[in-house]
Write a protein that binds this DNA or RNA. Structure first.
Lengths: 206, 206
DNA sequence: GTCTATAAAGTGATAGAC
DNA sequence: GTCTATCACTTTATAGAC
């Protein structure tokens, strides 16, 4: 992968290649997605793909970057509206569920990274770390707003970690058994309230 | 994949091939694990692998079957010991965490299946369904024992689904950021108690 | 059951005309 | 920027001696 990755940011052909690669890689994984299959899927010859991205890893990196940018751009603000904690929690969880539903294949894309050789593709690994961190920060800040504590406070960070775990698990469940499954927002409301109470950031009153 | 998969059930060479394939496939995925790499890893020629398993898919299927059998054989009974619900829940969750820690790479193996072509490898897909179902049944029956309801009751099934989601998510978190992470048993105790209460199978008393 | 040798196809990547 | 043509290599899988 060379610096050709920085050429021609948003040309139509570049986007067409990324669309095809994105679909194939999220469906079959990185290793099983060959350049020739991307080529036939988008109708452009292999050499065009190499001209745009320099290597197969370059294609992958660009796919990941585009996915992260789309996710981050679609995140609502971290100031959650609502009169009291239960209402704010409900509003927040429905926002999370919406983001979750809007990015159905992202985890499959990310999983591909961790299957790569340890030695290779450190740029893709950095991209993965950025992706996960951006989500975690948004969750923690929003949860802080819900419970009226700083987003950097331990309870907010803890609950964000718990919620991120659930989101990952729900993503797994979605692609293993039910493609249309969303987040269990009702149960999450109950569980997060209880966890907040156990950490002293929510009164015992319902 | 032909019927050679049924030959010589537990010969040493067969096990050596499965050991190597299991390691490589859980680390790099199905597509990135070639027969030649398995061959060099276990010291046997490619033709021996084909003699034992008939095809690459045959190797994969055998790896999955062995993993499921090992998991199922290691599950404790579904009658959970303990004087009251909180104690039984604690005992159950530590049993779950132990199983979780003992099978660190199973999810990575299973993820490989869902990356295969839709048309191919229906046997592996059936194996995946069996694997997940066995876990879910054990969880539901054990949770029924914890809360004193039948394992087929809706609350037990619901909580089992929730717990399976968390286990999947924790598995993701483990391989994405912290290889040594286990299940958050403390938080799970709080969360599952609250969910049980919301379903009326646990008194409001702590 | 294991070995060597090899066939047939697919892979990542590049050269050079246009 | 896209095209055709191609190289060097790896892939799955098989044939046949031992």
């Amino acid at each position: 992968m060379n610096d050709t990755a920085t050429r021609g940011r948003t040309t139509p052909s570049r986007e067409a290649i990324l669309d095809a690669a994105s679909t194939l890689m999220s469906r079959h994984g990185y290793a099983a997605t060959s350049i020739s299959r991307i080529s036939t899927a988008c109708g452009l010859p292999a050499s065009s793909i190499y001209w745009h991205f320099g290597s197969k890893e370059g294609v992958y990196l660009a796919v990941l970057q585009r996915a992260r940018q789309a996710l981050v751009a679609g995140l609502p603000g971290t100031v959650v509206p609502g009169a009291d904690v239960p209402r704010r929690l409900t509003a927040f969880l429905s926002a999370v569920a919406e983001v979750f539903d809007r990015h159905p294949h992202d985890l499959r894309l990310l999983v591909g990274i961790s299957m790569l050789e340890e030695t290779a593709c450190s740029a893709a690994r950095a991209e993965l770390a950025d992706y996960r961190l951006a989500l975690r920060r948004w969750l923690a800040d929003s949860l802080g707003s819900v419970f009226g504590v700083p987003g950097t406070a331990a309870p907010a960070e803890d609950l964000a970690g718990f919620l991120l775990t659930i989101a990952g698990g729900a993503s797994i469940a979605r692609w293993f058994e039910d493609p249309d499954a969303s987040l269990p927002v009702g149960d999450l409301h109950v569980a997060l309230s209880a966890l907040a109470r156990s950490r002293g950031v929510l009164d015992d009153a319902r």
